[in-house]
């Protein structure tokens, strides 16, 4: 029982960790694009990115499940060409988590980028630097508080997600059973002491993570134009 408890927690943090790393790689370019682009359909992309914040998780989970299904596109392509099966597997959970935590990575970063004066990027361009160099050497280092918020919020939100995970992952111990699902499952089985263990762990972890964000952002006061 104890082994299963730790296996479930390990899986939960593994999922949150991998999701956060992928989100960093995907989210930074998206946030930079949304903050600086004057592309005509930017609002559409912004809306799509923000959707998971307001959409019922079961709706997202339902569509993902349909998409993963080998009977439809793109699930059939994934199976036939890459031999990948996403429904009720860990990779499937990662893909789902990346999608539903996307706004929690993108919004803080986007707000951070927008808070910087335009002249900072412009100065970098006039010094002969490319957009990529400017992004990594000038813009990102100056929005560290936003970066920390984005990482912690994405991580915490992935740990806490229930609806989507249940729909696309189910409850397979050691494969797709994460802590939030385990709590529900233990309560269903009237195993309250176990549910309590999971619940308290999640409560404590989330508390500490958010505390870190607020403490850091307080210390590193927001952008202050001289």
């Amino acid at each position: 029982m104890s082994n299963e408890f730790f296996a479930t927690l390990a899986l939960t943090f593994k999922l949150a960790g991998i999701t956060t790393v992928i989100l960093l790689i995907v989210g930074i370019p998206i946030a930079a694009f949304l903050a600086f682009s004057r592309f005509r359909f930017r609002a559409v992309i912004e809306t799509l990115v923000s959707m998971p914040m307001v959409l019922p998780p079961s709706v997202l989970g339902y569509y993902l499940l349909i998409a993963y299904s080998p009977d439809h596109f793109p699930g059939n392509i994934l199976r036939d060409w890459f031999n990948v099966q996403l429904a009720f597997t860990f990779p499937g959970l990662v893909v789902g988590s990346v999608l539903f935590s996307l706004p929690f990575m993108v919004s803080p970063l986007q707000a951070g980028f927008r808070s910087l004066p335009d002249s900072l990027a412009e100065a970098s361009y006039t010094l002969g630097k490319s957009k990529v160099v400017t992004l990594f050497r000038v813009l990102l280092p100056n929005i560290k508080p936003s970066l920390v918020s984005a990482v912690v919020l994405s991580f915490a939100h992935t740990i806490g997600e229930f609806g989507v995970v249940l729909m696309i992952g189910g409850n397979i111990p050691g494969v797709t059973r994460v802590a939030s699902i385990a709590i529900y499952d233990e309560v269903q089985g009237l195993n309250y002491s176990m549910a309590n263990k999971y619940a308290f762990t999640l409560f404590a972890v989330t508390f500490v993570l958010l505390l870190v964000v607020f403490a850091l952002n307080r210390k590193q006061a927001l952008w202050k134009p001289f």
Partner: peptide, 27 residues
């Protein structure tokens, strides 16, 4: 802009807050 070899001094300076004086110059 990045292909034009100009030195542009902004009215609001636009120094990079994450770099020291020397790093600003080296950048």
């Amino acid at each position: 802009a990045r292909m034009r070899p100009v030195g542009y001094m902004f009215q609001e300076y636009a120094l990079f807050p994450n770099m020291t004086v020397k790093e600003n110059l080296a950048f």
